[in-house]
């Protein structure tokens, strides 16, 4: 096991740790504070130096864990398998080793059929320097994840990191039993720059941060039903969300996907004509939709629960 050190020079007491920012934390800090104290055991930790075999070709530095931490721990005394991406290393992108760790973890969860999985997303998508390996890793992860869900394993995604949850990461998130997202957590397939490059700055100005947050950010995802729980940007809030969602995660079956089909079809019908998130929020019945981005966590979480009941049976 690898001990984790705070990267700030402050001393942490328990209270300040639980209220400290998920967004600002490293992947290792998130894992440490999410799980019960000292319960985490890492698989193929950094001491194994299983670094990317491909980054040297591009003369790029490697990281000993390739930006993915996987292991076993306890949450509220119960066993969980955990995977966490480090969004600051190569944008948390999926490469060969990075992805294969999560694939192996999910295959084990499937065959054990009893231990829930938590995925702490923080990713820009596929790592381009090993794009084919990364793309395939995402496909393999999705298959293993769905196989695990089909035997009743809850797979819960937590989204609130610096890199967001983009590209193939967004597709994996869409396969999870349930998601918790914070305001800072963006979930999307195409990133802001990609849309701007393809459609022009008139359609999407990637430098317009407010536009990015309201189109892809956690508040919008919670409001359209893309995530079940809106979390505060704290370790404690994500821990509570993880425990709640593990308990409430439905298994997956044909009827789940039929429900999802109608849920998604209704979304297009209801909001397909909207040109901006604010229009969608207005259609949902928000009294002052333009003020939603400014709402604090508690106000927003309460409003979201009024406007859109989480659907646990349609994902």
């Amino acid at each position: 096991m690898i001990a984790v050190v705070s990267e700030t020079s402050k001393d942490h007491d328990d209270a300040s740790v639980s209220t400290s920012s998920w967004y600002e934390a490293s992947a290792r800090q998130r894992v440490e504070h999410l799980l019960d104290a000292n319960s985490f055991n890492e698989f193929i930790g950094p001491e194994w130096r299983e670094t990317s075999p491909h980054l040297p070709l591009f003369d790029l530095p490697e990281q000993f864990d390739d930006g993915m931490i996987v292991g076993y721990g306890r949450l509220g005394g119960k066993p969980v398998l955990v995977a966490a991406q480090e969004g600051r290393f190569m944008g948390g992108a999926f490469g060969e080793i990075h992805g294969a760790k999560l694939t192996g973890l999910l295959r084990a969860a499937r065959d054990m059929a009893s231990v829930p999985v938590l995925i702490l997303f923080d990713t820009g998508g596929v790592r381009l320097q090993e794009a084919n390996a990364g793309e395939l890793a995402i496909a393999e992860i999705m298959r293993a994840l769905i196989e695990a869900r089909l035997v009743g394993v809850p797979v819960v995604g937590l989204v609130g990191g610096r890199a967001g949850c983009y590209g193939g990461g967004g597709l994996i998130a869409g396969c999870c039993s349930a998601l918790a997202v914070s305001e800072q957590g963006r979930i999307s397939v195409s990133g802001p720059e990609v849309i701007e490059t393809n459609r022009g700055v008139e359609e999407f100005d990637s430098k317009d941060r407010a536009l990015v947050w309201r189109t892809m950010g956690g508040k919008h995802r919670r409001l359209i039903g893309g995530a079940e729980v809106f979390a505060d940007d704290t370790m404690a809030s994500f821990r509570d969300a993880a425990r709640y969602l593990i308990e409430h995660a439905p298994s997956m079956s044909l009827s789940t996907l039929e429900s999802e089909q109608s849920r998604l079809a209704q979304r297009i019908e209801r909001f397909g004509h909207c040109s901006d998130a604010v229009d969608i929020w207005r259609s949902l019945g928000a009294a002052e939709p333009e003020n939603l981005p400014a709402l604090h966590y508690r106000e927003f979480a309460a409003l979201a629960n009024d406007l859109q009941e989480p659907r646990h049976d349609a994902r």
Binding site: M142, G174, S188, H220, E260, L264, D276
Partner: peptide
């Protein structure tokens, strides 16, 4: 995938994941 504001606004990641599922 269609790279547009509208598709992402509507949650394209869920739609693509749904198809794969």
């Amino acid at each position: 995938q269609r790279m547009s504001k509208r598709d992402e606004l509507l949650g394209l990641n869920e739609f693509l994941a749904h198809l794969a599922k």
